[in-house]
């Protein structure tokens, strides 16, 4: 349906604009943003908020196409294989664009590192190391460690599934803390994790702040530490992971805009500038502020490139150190 509209619109644009214009100035027709999830989640919302602002900046529609499935591989490939003219972009995140390319390299039909380029990192979602108050009483990170040591394997943690970053994060945390916990994965993601904690199926998790805020306020969940560079507004008493003694533990959950690697440099520059412009708009800032999300736009397209490479290297290291078994 959306694609149909896009085709009609672009056909219309070509008909009135003529091909000469289309070659001169980017963008001269609607741009498609592929999102690797069903509508409604954090990445989808980011794409829509940015799309809305980019439309104002560049004067063309930015149409979101949701293409969930296969850990994001389907979306990445659709973007990477499309014509590299800047009319097909992707907004992905640490899971779909750093962990998946490392963990599921053999499932790709493209070479992720050669075929995909990062246009700009957009933002970072803080998450909490959080515990439930349902039949569970833990004061702080130390207390959690003590209780886990007295009851090895009895405390249950939830994650967004086998091989998801909340799973890796908790394994790394447990290893550093010298404790052992029981993993109850939930493949429905943050919503499912929140439910697991509230009903008491699980007791601990790394969960993003936007999803957990209302339940913290209601006293159902208790944040022990925050995965972020600084303490987050509204939670002055919650230490960062580093302050709690676990420096470097926990994933900084970023989202970024990506394009096919062969996209011409001027197009990437235009997009980058428009993203920077969009990030200055009060409406956009406010929307992210309210979700406790910090905008962290890359300094330049080049920086975005080296940064993505760094992320891939980091995940290669993590996945080789923390062996998570994926049954075949």
């Amino acid at each position: 349906m959306k694609r149909l509209t896009l085709m009609l619109l672009s056909g219309f644009a070509l008909a009135i604009g003529g091909t000469a214009v289309a070659q001169d100035k980017y963008p001269s027709k609607p741009v498609k943003i592929v999102v690797p999830y069903a509508p409604g989640g954090g990445t989808d919302i980011t794409a829509r908020i940015f799309g809305d602002q980019l439309k104002n900046g560049l004067g063309q529609q930015f149409v979101v196409e949701n293409k969930p499935g296969a850990f994001g591989i389907l979306a990445v490939e659709e973007m990477a294989r499309s014509r590299p003219d800047g009319y097909t972009l992707m907004i992905g995140n640490v899971s779909t664009n750093a962990i998946t390319p490392v963990l599921f390299k053999n499932k790709f039909k493209i070479d992720f590192e050669k075929d995909v380029v990062s246009v700009a990192r957009l933002n970072i979602y803080p998450s909490f190391l959080i515990v439930t108050n349902t039949n569970f009483d833990v004061k702080d990170v130390k207390d959690l460690m003590t209780q886990a040591k007295t009851n090895p394997g009895k405390i249950r943690y939830t994650s967004a599934g086998i091989g998801s970053f909340p799973h890796f994060d908790m394994e790394i945390f447990a290893r550093r803390a010298g404790i052992e916990m029981n993993h109850i994965p939930n493949k429905t993601g943050a919503a499912g994790m929140l439910n697991d904690l509230v009903v008491g199926d699980a007791q601990v998790a790394f969960l993003n702040s936007a999803s957990s805020a209302a339940m913290i306020k209601a006293g159902k969940l208790k944040p022990l530490a925050v995965v972020a560079e600084q303490r987050v507004p509204g939670y002055p008493d919650v230490p960062t992971m580093a302050e709690a003694g676990f420096k470097g533990v926990g994933t900084l959950h970023w989202q970024s805009m990506l394009a096919p690697a062969a996209t011409p440099r001027p197009v990437i520059d235009t997009l980058f500038k428009a993203v920077v412009e969009a990030s200055k708009q009060p409406a956009l800032k406010e929307a992210f502020d309210k979700q406790l999300v910090s905008l962290k736009i890359s300094e330049s397209p080049d920086e975005a490139k080296t940064w993505l490479k760094g992320e891939l290297d980091a995940w290669r290291k993590i996945t080789s150190e923390v062996k998570i078994e994926l049954a075949e």
Binding site: A38, P39, A214
Partner: peptide, 19 residues
């Protein structure tokens, strides 16, 4: 319902026990 939550978070509204 996931979409509805998405629509609310954009306005900075966190649905929850306090709503």
């Amino acid at each position: 319902m996931a979409l509805m939550i998405g629509a609310l978070t954009i306005h900075g509204i966190q649905p929850g026990p306090q709503i």
